[in-house]
Simulated assay, not measured.
Amino acid sequence: MSTASPLEPLVRPGHGRGLADVPRHRYLLRLLVNKEIQVRYRGSILGLVWSYIKPGVQFLVFYLALGLFLGLNKNMENYPVYLFSGIVLINFFGEAFGNGARAMVANGALIKKIYLPRELFSVSTVWVALIHFLPQLLVLLLACLLVGWHPSLLQLAVIVVAMLIMVLLSAGLGLVFGVANVFFRDSENIVDLLTMVATWLSPVLYVWTMVAQELPGWAFPLYMANPITVAVELFHYGFWQPTTSGTAPIPPHLLSLWTPVALGISLVVLVLGDLMFRRLEGRFAQEL
């Protein structure tokens, strides 16, 4: 006499467990990442080489405008390393956040045909952004080594923490605006504006001391509460400062206060994005 197997709990169609479903569907995630790479470079001659060209052109333009014409290169030691370390990080955020916000609409035809954990679309854009980030990171490492990079273990650790902040933040914002874009297509324009503003509201092109001198005392903590600002400064601390004489100042309480604050804010954004996604994903097929 055979015993009946326990029944699986019923699951409401079209709903999943949010980001908790992602590790269980690693194979699907890999397929989506491969699809994104193939679609993006279909018919392209240079392919992944564009990962070098875009930041290279950005660096050249900003270096000429700010480094040479405005004189930042004269007042800062190894300003090219400072500039490029900020550019590669903000480029990762812009790509991961922007493509994550468009992921649901871009994959609308697939969402309407079959069910699979929809968070995979957003998570795959972060992985694609990481793939494009790696060539830029290699160029940055080479440049740092050429000018005498000598990081401590702490500085190597903060580089990893900076990337963790940006991954959590870009994934969380990608989920939030990915949901918003399903219902309000104007969200794409807001994402473009936020990505542009993020470059100038964080010390990618200029030094944080300029901000501290101009802002009133109560406003500077608000500036430092921006997780992107903290991540960029951590990258500067890990890559740029070891190439200088060691006298370059870092923002007050960067490691002891602002880094935990940035990690906390990024994690909260990710959790809120996941909750928002799980609440509304059942309406995606209808809206798309």
Results as ranks from 00 to 15, higher is better:
113 K>I: 02
98 G>D: 05
243 T>W: 07
74 K>W: 10
192 D>K: 14
179 V>G: 03
97 F>P: 01
14 G>N: 02
128 V>N: 02
81 V>E: 10
137 L>W: 06
153 L>D: 08
42 R>L: 11
52 Y>V: 10
117 P>M: 04
209 T>W: 11
273 G>A: 01
266 S>C: 01
188 E>W: 10
12 R>I: 04
75 N>P: 04
36 E>A: 05
64 L>A: 14
209 T>M: 07
14 G>H: 03
102 R>A: 15
193 L>V: 15
165 I>E: 04
89 L>T: 13
157 A>D: 08
123 V>N: 03
213 Q>A: 14
222 L>M: 09
240 W>Y: 10
62 F>V: 04
155 Q>E: 07
241 Q>G: 05
114 I>L: 15
228 I>N: 05
77 E>L: 09
46 L>M: 12
203 P>Q: 07
213 Q>R: 12
267 L>F: 11
264 G>E: 05
161 V>T: 12
264 G>D: 08
146 L>W: 13
286 Q>S: 14
31 L>Q: 15
274 D>E: 05
178 G>A: 05
64 L>P: 02
260 P>S: 03
101 A>V: 01
192 D>Q: 11
232 V>Y: 10
71 G>F: 15
57 V>R: 10
133 F>R: 02
173 L>I: 11
262 A>F: 09
185 R>A: 13
169 L>M: 11
140 L>V: 08
50 W>E: 05
45 I>N: 08
277 F>S: 00
136 Q>T: 14
268 V>E: 00
67 G>Y: 12
243 T>Y: 07
81 V>N: 09
44 S>I: 11
274 D>K: 00
38 Q>R: 15
107 N>T: 02
192 D>W: 11
249 P>M: 07
115 Y>K: 04
202 S>K: 05
259 T>Q: 06
111 I>V: 10
150 H>W: 09
130 L>R: 09
137 L>F: 13
39 V>G: 10
248 A>S: 13
234 L>K: 06
209 T>R: 10
